[in-house]
Every structure is written in C-alpha cells, then in structure tokens.
Design a binder for these strands. Structure first.
Lengths: 212, 212, 212, 212
DNA sequence: CTATAACCGAGACGGTACGTCCAGTCTTGAA
DNA sequence: TTCAAGACTGGACGTACCGTCTCGGTTATAG
C-alpha cells in the first residue's frame, strides 16, 4: 500500500500502536483530507503526492492522517471511493434485448470515462500502486473494480436466460474476457481506447459466447 | 519512469550537463549496475530499491548511474531486458496443427513463469511503474511485451492459413483477446493464474475465432 | 559564513521553509551538536569538518543543524562561544600599578593560550573563515574578540588615570597597537608567538604612549 | 593550501607521482589558467572557486591544472603573484627626510589599494586560506607580504641612520608594529581602513620609536 | 625525418558531502 | 483525547566537485 514497503506491516507503521477512538474523529478533517488528496493527485500525480502536502492543503496535522490511514494509497482509495460510489451501479446495464448494443453502449461510456483526465489520473494511480502492492490491489479490486464488473456479470446472465448466450458459458468468465483486454490496453497503453475498440471487443466476445 | 515524477522531463533530472560520450562508457560499470539492480530488486523489492544501494552494491559512483539512466525504472528495464532477451522468441509457438493444444502449452508455460517469484517480482515492478509512467510503459511494452505478443500473432496467422481460424479475424486482435484477460488478472490479482485458467481462456477465445 | 558561499543569502540556504519555532527547540540536540562540533574540529580540523559528521556524531538529523544554523562556521562559533564565555573576562587585567608587568603577564598568558592546539585550532578556523566572510567576521569579532579587547581598553584607561599613560592617548587605539601585531603574527604565522615577543611588544607600545 | 586538507601531502595529491617535464609545458595554457583564476575569484569568490570551473573557463583539461599546481590556492597564488610582481617594490619608500610624511604617504596608498575590490578580493581570499593552511601561509607571506614589508624595514633603517629613530629600535619590529594593526584591522574588519587610521597609526608608532 | 614519449583537451570514473525533501514519531498547547 | 502545528531522527534524493584515470590528438625532441 505504501510505496516504500513491499509487505506493509499488519498494523501500519504510521500508527503508534494504539487504536484511535473512532467516535471522536473529526468529520471535517476527514473530508478535508480526502478532498485535498483528490485535488493534489490531479495536480502533481500520485508519485509526487506526499502526506505532508495533503496535510498542509487540508489544514490538518500530519498525525491526523497517520492516525486514520496506513498510507497515502489508502487515503486516495477512500477519497476515490467517495467519488465513485456516487456513480450508481444500481440500475446496472440496460437490457434492450440487444446484447451487443447494450454492451457497446456501456463500454463506450467507459471509454469516455477512461479518457477523462480527472477520472483517469487518480484511478490509474491507484491501479498502478495496486499492481505493486498486494494489500492495496485487494482493496482496489473489491471496492472499485468489482462493482463495475458485477453489472456485466448480471447482464450476461440475463442474456443467457434470454437465449442470447450459450448455456455452457460462465458469465463471470465472459466478463473477464470482455474487460480483460480493455483493462490491459488501458493500463499498459498498448493502444488507445476508442469506440471502435469497444465495438470490436464486444463483437469478438459475443462471437465466442453466442449460442451455436 | 521515475516514481518521483509523473511526467519526467525530456532530459531527465539526474543528468547534469548534457549527453555523455557513449564511446567512452565503462562496460564493466554498466554490467555491475545491471547486475546489482537485478539482485537488489529481488532482495528488497522495487519500492525499497534505491539508486544509492545499487551504486554501493555495484561499486560505482551514483553519478555513473545518473549519467546513463534517467531513473531506477530505466535501470531495471535494461537489467531485465538483458535477462529476457536471452529467452528466445525466435522459434515462436510450435505448430503441431492443433491450435488449442499449442496455445495452451505456451500459455501454461507463461503461467509458470508468472508464478516464479524471481521473474515475477521485477517484471511486476516494471509493469506497475509503467502503468504510472507513460514514457516507461512505452519502453516496457516495446521491449518486453511485444516480442512475446508477436509470437502469438504469427501463430494465429498460421492458423488462419491452415483454416483453423475464420478468415475475417484479425490475428493481432485475437492475441489481445487472449493475453488481455491474462495480463489483467495478473496485474490486479483478481484471481490466481492457473493452468485451468489458461486452458479455459484458450477455449473461449478459440470458440470466438473458429471458422463458422 | 559558509565556506561555500561568499555572500550568504539573508536567510541561509539550509533553511527550507521559514523561521522555526524557537520555543520548541530541543535543548539536548543543541548541546549535542555544539559538543560534537568542538570535538570534531579538534580531531579533523575545520576544512575536513562536515555537517554530516557533526550530525552523525551528535546523533541528530542533518536537518536539525540546517534548521538552526546557516553554516558550519556558525555552528562552530556558537560552540566556541560557549567555551570562551566560561573563561571570565569579568575580573579584567590586574592592576598592580606596574602597567608593563600587568600587560606582559596577560599577553604571556595569551601566548600560552594560542600555543595550545585544542584552543588554537577552532579559533583559527573561525578567524580564517571570518577573514573570508564578512557576516561571520562581524560575529566573530563581536562575540569572541571584543570581550578580550575590552579588558585591555579598561586597563589602559586606568593607566591614564594613574598617570602611567599620556593624556592624549586613546585607550582603544593603544589596544589596537598592542593586539594588532599579535594577531597579525598569529594569523599569518610570520613568526612564532613567544614570551619574548609579548614582552617586546609591550615595551615598544608603552614607549609610545608613556607620558612625556 | 587546499581547503579540503589540513595537512596537504608533501607531493600534492593531484600529482600522479611522476614529475612533469617543465620544458614541454604549454605556456598558453598556463596563462589561460592564471587568467581564468583571477577572473573567477573576482566573480564567485574563493570558496566557490572550483578547479573544474577554472579548467572550463581556461579551455583546459583538469589534469593540466593538477599536473602543475597542488591546489586552487596555489594557482591563485601564482595568478596573484603575477599581478603583484608588476607593482614594483624596487624603488622602495621615498626618503624625503620626513619619516612621518613618507610613511603616511605609502600607508595611505596601501589603504587605497585595500579598498579596491579587484585587488582586495583575491588577496583576502589568499590571506584567509593562508590563515587556515600553514603551508599556504608560508608561501603567501614569502611571496606577497615580505616584499612589501621589506621596503618599510629599509626605510626605518635609513631613518635610524638619519637619527630620526632611536638607536635601540629594531627596524623589523617597528615595521611589525606599524603593519600589524593595519593587517589585523583589515583581516577581521574591526574598523574600516581610512587615511585617518593610517596617519594615526604612523603617529603612534613614531612616538614609540623616536629618539629620546 | 620519423617515432615515440610528453603534454594536452576532454570528460568518465569512484567517491564524499552537499543541501533538500519527506517519512513516520514525538511533543506542545488549545479546544 | 483529538487536533493543528511543527520539531525531531533518519535516509534517499539528485547535484557538485574532488582527484584519478583513460582516450585520441598534437607537438617536440631523440634516434
């Protein structure tokens, strides 16, 4: 989680050992810290983001950060979760009956999202930090990736029930087949993320899972 | 490239004056630095790897590192390239006539490779650093990923000629379809990399690209 | 003050942000730094004295030195002031009625002092640094030289009142006449500092200021 | 001599061990080095003066400096000697028969000289470096100070023969009495060097050495 | 009249220290 | 007890020079 440690201690180093009293926590400080983190990561990037700068920007003592978070990645994860949670995954992917069209629509929207710097920068920072740090990636996947993944799984399941997908196809695996190339291309920047890519991806995947 | 900078300057900060004279470069120092980097990244991990430690281990002045590399990521990339280059991509993927079997064999070997800590640790470190730094990822992709990718592309092309793949399928895209989920799963550690995963992945992909 | 800077900036380079809070200064660190400086300058000499070595010896972070002092010369000045202050100038030069004898006694003691390496080394280092750096010499003169000079001035004034010195002689100038050759000889090492020199010096000076 | 070494090696460190062949020495390089030194010391001061900068400015390899001089102080000493030698001490101090007037005239000229920055800066730099380094001060005194001192000694001897000075006065000591306060005041900047100071100094000294 | 040994410009090299930045801990005083 | 503030130890950063060491190239005697 901390870029300085490969295997972060169970209780993080910044914590003096005592568990702080959550009930007395300052909500305004918490918000200021999360807010400052989001702003700063956009301004200077993740690697130049420092706890000190966050504290200074938030008008908060460094200890207040160390008291409640184990690392800057954790802070950022919290900060970003706050943003993403408001995006609602509740409604899921629309089901117009046209699986290809539905998937393309959502994937195209995701392309747009990942081409938006203010969203992309912190998300990428977290993904990169997660790639390096197992404990962070676990959090990152669970809190940021899985909600988005699940809506695809549900849509594929609906498709199967509607006979648009072969019976023996695993919806989760189909999702992985669809999102994997997308994520890989994005993370490693092998090629740009375009609508065309999204459409082609959907076409290829659907071809593999279509009923025979 | 450097974890301290999101957008490294064109000429990196470590370079004091200007372009050193390549012809007078000390080959023994170069090797010692690359060697020390590989050892150290295995011992302490990427984030705890320091230029100072590399210099000390290599018996070299820090400036000699800063003179020739812009960051520790670049050093590691060179060091790792030296190792990987010896792996031979020349022979490519065997063509026994059974596309599925051939792909599974190679992908299973890759699974093994990515489950070998001495290989995985520095490779992951570079991938993570590359995810955060565009100029590094460009290098990473070109020098470490593409050679591995190309052998798949060639195998798919052979398959198409052999009538094992539909005519309208793009070999490069098929490769992306195959390797994308693999890379995504590995980078984000969503699920473990197993032979079963490799096999299933090949099966799903081939189903999508098979001649109709 | 700093041997690296001829004209030190108003706020010295070592100071990152701005004026630290004096009230929270660690007294133990301050003492350890001053102590380590005095020991080290005796061991390795001024020019080989480094801030890093002082910090290491004092068990202190470098920043703690840079926070409170602009240069190693300033550290040494403080360290030396602490030593010298304990020497007492309070009683001044004895007045036995024999001006020549009184002056010779004190000047001979000074000869001894300047021939004592543990005293001479840091004092000379500061004097040399002061010769090169105006802001340091101002401090050096005010804190280390003037107290010693003043006792002579007072003795000369007493001598004038006692009729041992011509009425029109300026006590301060007489002091300069006495100490100038002494200092010049010491600094430039033109000749060794001996009792004979001290005595001769007093004789010559008194001859010039005696009542006619 | 070198600010990095308290006790410079007998044969200086920069010398590889072999004595270079003086007859093949490049005169143009020598001049360029001396010239660059003088310019640079005026621009950046002694402590910020570096061998590398001298070499660069002189368009000379570093080794060429290290081959012929043991330290930057030695270079500067040579450079300054070249300048000072042209000032002629040959004619000595005029002897108009009026000792006081003669001394005041010369001392006033010296006041002017020491108030001229282009002369004062390198001279002070050398004096300060000499104060710290015995082997340099020996050179400094012999090559730069003694020629100037000797003219005073000769003038005092002439004065004694002319009956303007007591028979038992040592001309060398009288000179020390005159120049010591001057040098001390200049080096430590206790007070400014003025004509008035020069005159008063002469008056006080002459009073002490006048025939009784 | 070469050749061969030096000096020379250039600058890479192993090092040391610089002054800075920031991590994570600790202390103080106010609320 | 939390909090803002910030001093503290510690360690790595990237830079600047040190003095040494090659590397061609260019003289300038010695054979």
């Amino acid at each position: 989680m901390d870029e300085k440690s490969e295997q972060p201690a169970r209780t993080h180093p910044g914590r003096t050992g005592r568990t702080p009293d959550t009930s007395r926590r300052s909500e305004s400080s918490r918000k200021a810290i999360l807010d400052a983190s989001m702003r700063l990561v956009g301004e200077v990037g993740y690697n130049k983001l420092t706890i000190e700068a966050i504290a200074a920007r938030a008008g908060v003592g460094k200890q207040t950060i160390y008291r409640w978070w184990p690392s800057k990645a954790a802070v950022l994860l919290d900060a970003f979760t706050g943003v993403v949670d408001e995006e609602s995954y509740q409604q899921g992917i629309p089901d117009t009956g046209d699986l290809a069209a539905d998937l393309k629509a959502v994937l195209r929207a995701t392309v747009d999202e990942f081409n938006t710097p203010s969203f992309e920068a912190p998300y990428r920072a977290l993904a990169a930090a997660g790639a390096a740090d197992p404990s962070l990636s676990e959090q990152f996947v669970r809190r940021l990736m899985e909600p988005g993944r699940d809506v695809y799984v549900r849509r594929f399941e609906a498709a199967r029930e509607a006979g648009q997908m072969a019976e023996d196809i695993d919806a989760a695996f189909a999702t992985e087949l669809l999102l994997g190339p997308f994520q890989a291309r994005w993370l490693m920047r092998t090629e740009p993320l375009t609508y065309e890519f999204a459409d082609t991806l959907v076409d290829y995947v659907l071809r593999g899972i279509a009923p025979r």
